[in-house]
Each structure stands twice: as C-alpha cells, then as structure tokens.
Design a protein around this nucleic acid. Structure first.
Length: 428
RNA sequence: GGAGAUGUGGCUGAGUGGUCGAAAGCGCCGGUUUGCUAAAUCGGUGAUGGAGUCAAAUCCAUCCGCAGGUUCGAAUCCUGUCGUCUCCGCCA
C-alpha cells in the first residue's frame, strides 16, 4: 500500500506508475473521495469536541432539570456525530479499496514495459551453459533412471503436481538446504523454520490474495488460515504491528519452509516434472531494514543468489524485471534464470530465484515500524525478500547441468561435505 | 476437545462509569550536587490523524489486545474475537 498523502501529493506520478505496470487505477476517484473524507472528519471531530464539552458539565449540574437538559443535548450531538462518522467510515472504506489496488512505485532504473518481454538481462553467472557431447536428458528422465522421483505416487496420494523424492535425490535435497543455511548464517542471517500456515490477514499484508478465484494459495476450510506460498509470508508477518528500534535493523532472516501453490490457471504451461509443482521446500531470505538501506541490501541479496548458483556450478542469467511484470508490492525485482538443458528443444532458461525490494509497501499494510532514539514518531521499515534455493527448481538445475553420459550426476564440490564426500550420484 | 483466569505506556504495575492518556516504581533523556564513578536530588519522557508555525510553542480528535454494543459520558459494564496462562482429556 502506498502512503495516502503521497498519492494525493503525487497523483500524476502514481498514475504514470500504474500505466507502466499495466495496472488499472482510480486515482482521480481517490482524490475526490479523500477530499470528502477530510471534510467529514472535520465534522466528526467538531461534533465530538462539542459532545465531550457537554458531557463534562453534566456532573456539575446543580439541578435534575439542568442535568436532564444537558444529557439531551449531549445525546443529540452524539447522534449527529454517529451519522457523520458512518459517512466518513464508508468513504474511508472506498478509498482503501482503491488503495489496495495500487501497486508500489517502481525503481527509476527498472526497465519500463508492460510485460516480461521488456525484462532486461543484466549479466550471466560464472559458468556458461555446457556443450554436451551426448544428448542430455531432462531431470524427469534422470530421476526415473535411478528411481529418484515418483510423480505417479504423488498423483495417487495427493494429485497431479505432487511428487515423492526418493533415495539419493533426497540426500541431495537436504545437502542443498544445509549448504544454503550454513552459507546464509555465515553471512549474518538468522535461520528460522516457520509455520507452513498463516492467517488470511497476514497473506493480505504481504500482498497475496488469500481466497477467491484469483488466489494462488490453498486455504483451509472452516478457518482463517492458508498454506503459505512462501516463507516471505510468515517471515514478513512475524513482526506485524511491531516497532523496531532503529539499531536492531537491518534484521536478516533465513526461513526454511514448505511452499504450497495452487498454480491455478497455469495448466498447460511448460510444467513438466519438478518445474511447476504444488509443493516444494524453499530456503528464503527476508530483511527488515531502514529506508536508506534497502537499495544496497537488494543488491546484496542478488549477489548472494548469484554466489549460491555460482557455487553449485549452474549457469544462469540475471534479469531486471520490467515494470509490467513486477507484481504489486515490488519496487524492483531481480530474477535468476538457470540454464536447464533438458527444457524445450535444446535447453531453456528457467526462473530459479527472485529477489524483491518492497520498500515500505508491505510494512505499511502489516504495520511494521521503527523508532529512532531521540527522534519523535515512528516510520515504516522497508522489507526485502529473496530466494536462496527453491529446492524443486534447484534440483532440476543440478540434475540437468551436472549429468554425465552414463546418466550419473556429478555433485558440485560445495555440496560434497553434506553427502559424505560423494562426487557423483547414480551411475554404475 | 472440556473448565477457568487474564490482556493497561519501553518494562513492572495501580486504576471497576465522569477533567484518566492514565498513579507509582523501574528504565531512558536532561539539569543540580559530588574529585571521578556510584549514590542522591529536580525536571522531562507514548502513538496516530488533523489545525497551527519558517521552525517551535500550542490546540483538537482518536488510542488501555482487536472489533462491536450499552451510556450524555467507558480502561472501567456487555458481546464477539485474538493472544497468554492454569487445570483436565488426548497425543508426536
């Protein structure tokens, strides 16, 4: 959510931003309603003030008659106040509806364009896509070869889009998690496991729609809980309503959670194997910080993601997401797309991480503030998030990039300590 | 799942219908005193929205988990909700 005063004072910039992001807006209507609201608020306050003044004199009334007279006057004023208050609240609710539709402002350097075609490649990782001297398999084929993946079993027990990992692939999965968490702890992140369910209100604060036809998440019947689509939801919600001391920031968190996605409307899209599934494990980075720290921290998150994928020796490219493809809360977003040799005709890039600077957009909705010593008042923090590893896609990138002609898979060196030193999985 | 208790400012904690945004203590900030530190002592010390000002001062409204209700008036009474605690049951 944007600051209301900011929207009023910068209506043209907000409108332009919406246009760049390809989001419909009702800023003019908001301006009109807000001016109405201000008038109503003044009325309410005035009536309240008068009523309070009358109430205070009632205790001092000398006669019953006088007392009753004043009570009647007070009642009358309160009734008038109630009427004005109700009108105010209605207008306020309408404004809020509009506000909730407004996306965050975009970073001035973010590429402008209505969809992902305008995304800008910023560079590539240390490792170039490999030249294979054999015909590479995709991860589903590799997995089937060694009985590492069971999609049929997943479908039988839970439905299409679910899967079992088996055997060495589980060990690889755990190795990646351990490597990532250790690496993040080394870089000052506090590791956390989080709930896999969260309240609707937290989802809304982060910028998800908890229910309804457009929703990307599963909701639990007869409750106000949803299965989380990412630990961003729980880590971001963790301090909702809280006020940090400025010295506590930046607070860097590393969440380990399961992620659940309905992938409604995604049927038919490139989604073979582990690429688009209903459940996966993710190691997520999340930061609460001061406003003047967020730009640099965003670069830091991007660098960590690059370092992690360089470390597992997977080729990738960095994408600066175009305004039209940003999603509501993001001020700027970088994606890492890993090379997936088994995808498409002769390999394709596939998104494996994403890091967003959400500035104060989520903080305002969730009411997360900070206070500086000796400075009056509080301000909203900035929040950032970034994927360390989404395990399903990280597994794809490792299996497909590190496969050998005999079907075995080389273990990236950094992961070997977590696999009893094994250099390869599968194979004769 | 059943029964009960409870939720006040950074913290502890008083307040059970009328100048209560809220006593007191602690903490914190500033002053005084003391050779330094400690101690003592005095003063100050919440948030949000609005008016006001160059900026302040100042003024108004709202806030005692949250949302409603009763009342001229609610931290105080009522209802719901969320959280916490205790006991019982169940259980990894």
């Amino acid at each position: 959510m944007l600051d209301r005063k900011y929207v009023v004072a910068n209506a043209d910039a907000v409108k332009e931003n919406c246009q760049n992001r390809n989001v419909p807006q009702a800023v003019d209507q908001l301006l009109e309603l807000e001016s109405q609201r201000r008038d109503l608020l003044k009325q309410v306050e005035e009536l309240n003030r008068d009523a309070n003044a009358v109430s205070k004199t009632i205790g001092q009334a000398k006669t019953d008659e006088e007392r009753e007279e004043r009570k009647a006057r007070g009642r009358e004023l309160r009734e008038q106040k109630e009427v004005a208050q109700k009108q105010h609240d209605e207008v306020d609710a309408q404004i809020r509806e509009i506000e909730l539709q407004l996306p965050n402002m975009a970073h001035p350097d973010a590429p402008v364009g209505v969809d992902d075609k305008a995304n800008l490649e910023l560079g590539q990782g240390k490792h170039a896509p490999r030249e294979f001297d054999f015909s590479p398999l995709d991860h589903v084929e590799i997995g089937q070869q060694w009985d590492w993946l069971d999609f049929e079993g997943g479908a039988r027990t839970s439905g299409a889009g679910f899967y079992f990992l088996k055997g060495d692939l589980v060990l690889l999965d755990l190795a990646i998690q351990q490597y990532a968490v250790n690496e993040l702890v080394r870089r000052g992140f506090l590791p956390m496991t989080t709930p896999d369910l969260a309240r609707d209100s937290i989802l809304e604060g982060i910028g998800f729609m908890p229910r309804g036809p457009e929703t990307q998440v599963y909701s639990v019947e007869n409750s106000n809980l949803c299965l989380i689509g990412t630990a961003e939801i729980t880590l971001g919600g963790l301090y909702s309503g809280e006020t940090f001391d400025a010295e506590q920031l930046p607070l860097k968190l590393c969440g380990i959670s399961h992620c659940f996605r309905t992938e409604a409307g995604a049927a038919g899209r490139a989604s073979r194997g582990l690429y688009r599934v209903h459940q996966f494990t993710k190691i997520e980075m999340f930061i609460f910080c001061l406003p003047d720290q967020s730009d640099a921290l965003h670069e830091e998150l991007r660098q960590i993601e690059c370092d992690l994928f360089d470390a597992i020796e997977v080729p990738y490219r960095i994408v600066d997401t175009a305004t039209g493809d940003l999603g509501g809360p993001a001020y700027r977003k970088y994606d890492l797309e890993a090379w997936m040799p088994g995808r498409g005709e002769a390999g394709e890039w596939g998104e494996v991480t994403s890091t967003s600077n959400c500035t104060d957009y989520q903080a305002r909705r969730l009411n997360v503030r900070y206070k500086q010593k000796d400075v009056k008042g509080t301000h909203f923090v900035h929040t950032l998030n970034g994927t360390a590893f989404a395990l399903s896609r990280a597994l794809i990138s490792i299996l497909e990039n590190h496969q050998n002609a005999d079907g075995s898979v080389n273990v990236p060196e950094v992961l070997r300590p977590y696999l009893q030193g094994r250099e390869k999985l599968g194979g004769p």
